[in-house]
Design a binder for these strands. Structure first.
Lengths: 101, 101
DNA sequence: TTTATTTTTGACAAAATAAGTCAACACGAA
DNA sequence: TTCGTGTTGACTTATTTTGTCAAAAATAAA
């Protein structure tokens, strides 16, 4: 299971930041940040974007991962989760199409 | 836009319940119920199920609508909402497959 | 029109959840 | 030991959600 938190942790380590340094850079408490990377607390989208910039990483991919994780969190124990996703997708496509016109 | 609330309102009217009667039957304040039907407040899954039973309606479809609405609510203003849905779908399918084995 | 019924509205309180703060702990490297 | 690193838990504060209620507005009945 590759969560956004773990991805961000990898990126941080590759970028050579300690937890503390990164936390200071994005102006957040170290304790929370530690918990976020390990999935114990949720990221906000803003934080994900800040970190993507700090690590010079692909922010789009990270945001997509962040969002899908949020969605999955709501549907994980739902019998009809997959069906719900498909309906949602259909409606989102329709909406997008309408906006493009 | 066919929300769960409006669907449930239709079903209620077809079943011949007044807002009050239905509210009493599912043990909820009328004011909240009115707001829920009009999308001003969220339903809980439990209420959707109770109402489906009360109206003799297809609970699966209603729950699917309820869930997809919840998901869409989170993604409605997201640039990468559709991509996020696809990723979520892939992961959910994988998880389901794993559970079946 | 008057009366009664149904639905809607808004102000407010209570409960639940999320977010932030901080001090202390554990561990390994210098 | 001391320093840097990450983790944990207790606690407070903010925010969001949920529930309660009274009264207004709308609708239907007499």
């Amino acid at each position: 299971m590759s969560t956004v938190g773990l991805k961000l942790r990898e990126l941080r380590e590759k970028a050579g930041f300690s937890l503390r340094k990164a936390a200071v850079a994005i102006d957040i408490d170290v304790a929370i940040f530690s918990k976020m990377e390990r999935g114990e607390r949720k990221f906000s989208k803003e934080l994900v974007l800040k970190l993507a910039e700090l690590y010079n990483a692909d922010s789009d991919k990270l945001v997509i991962g962040f969002l899908s994780e949020k969605v999955l969190c709501e549907l994980k124990d739902e019998e009809y989760g997959l069906e719900a996703l498909k309906v949602a997708e259909k409606q989102l496509k329709y909406k997008k199409k309408k906006n493009d016109e």
